[in-house]
Amino acid sequence: MTKEYWRWDEKCWKDESMDPKSAGIISAGIDIGSVSSEAVLCLDGKFYASNTIRTGSNSPTSAKDALKPLLEYTGIAYENLDYIVGTGYGRVNIPFQDKAVTEIACHGRGANYMVGPSLRTILDMGGQDCKAIHVDEKGKVTNFLMNDKCAAGTGRGMETIADLLKVPITEIGDRSFQIDTPAEPISNVCVVFAKSEAMAMVKSGKTLNEVLASYCKAMADRVTQLLDRIGVEKEFFITGGISKNRGVTERIEENLGIKAVKPKDARLDPQTAGALGAALFGFVLASKKGSKKASRKGQTL
C-alpha cells in the first residue's frame, strides 16, 4: 500500500476535569473545512471537548463523522445539545445545524477565547484558503481578508509537497531548518509552479531538507503579502493546520518581526479555533434566543 505522507493525526480530546451533567447549556460547533473537519463541545461557554477528522467527499457525512464520535466519547446525547452552529467551507450543507456562521466570525471568536482580549490579528492558514483577520477585545471581526482562489499558502499545497517529496507532513517543519545554506527562492504564486520547481531542485542535487526549506519560505512569503494588506497588530496568533508547522510559522514571524502568541491553555489546539468559535456562538444564541434541544428530542445522529 502506498504510504500517505500527507496524513496528520485525527483525534478526540476532552477536559476530564469538567462534567457535562452539571452544565446548563451544551453547545456544539462544527467546522467543515476543505481538508479537515472539527467538532467542539462547550459547557456553559467553556471549551470541553474536540474531535478533528479528515473531511470526506461530502459535507453532511463529514459533519456527522466529526460530531458523532465526540458525542460517544463524552457520553453526551445528541438530543441534549442546546445549540449547534456550523461553519467553514461546507457550512451550508450541515443538515442538523441550528445556524450557520461564517468561518471569519468563528475564527475571530475562537481565537479570542484561546488567546484573550489582547489578541488583535489572526492568520488562519486553512486547507484551501488563507485568512487574515483583525478583531477587537471581544473577538468581533473589525477587518478581514480571505484568499481562496489558489492553493498557494495553504495546507493543500503543503500536502502536495509532502507527497511529492515523500516526507511525512509532520516532519516538514523541523527538517526545513536542518540546512547549511539559506533557502533558495521558489514560486509563491502557484502550487503547480512550486511543485515543478521543487522537482527541478531535487534533480539539480539539492537535499530534500533544502527543498522543504524553500517551500516553507515561499509559503511564509505568500501569507506575509496577505497580512501586509491589512497590517499586523499585536497580539498576533496563527490558527489552522499549518500553525503546527514551525517551518512556516517561524519564517512568517521572521518576515513580520513579530512573535506569534500561543494559546493561554496549551491543551487548546489552534486547528479547532473555528469550531470553538462556532460553539461559542451557539452558547450565546442559546442564552439569548433559547435552546433548540426540543427540536432534537428522541433523535440520534
Partner: peptide, 16 residues
C-alpha cells in the same frame, strides 16, 4: 468592519 473581497494572483491584487 472592513470586509475585503477578492484575491491576489500572479497578475496583481483585486479586492473590493
Amino acid at each position: 468592519m472592513i470586509a475585503n473581497y477578492g484575491y491576489m494572483d500572479g497578475s496583481g491584487e483585486y479586492y473590493i
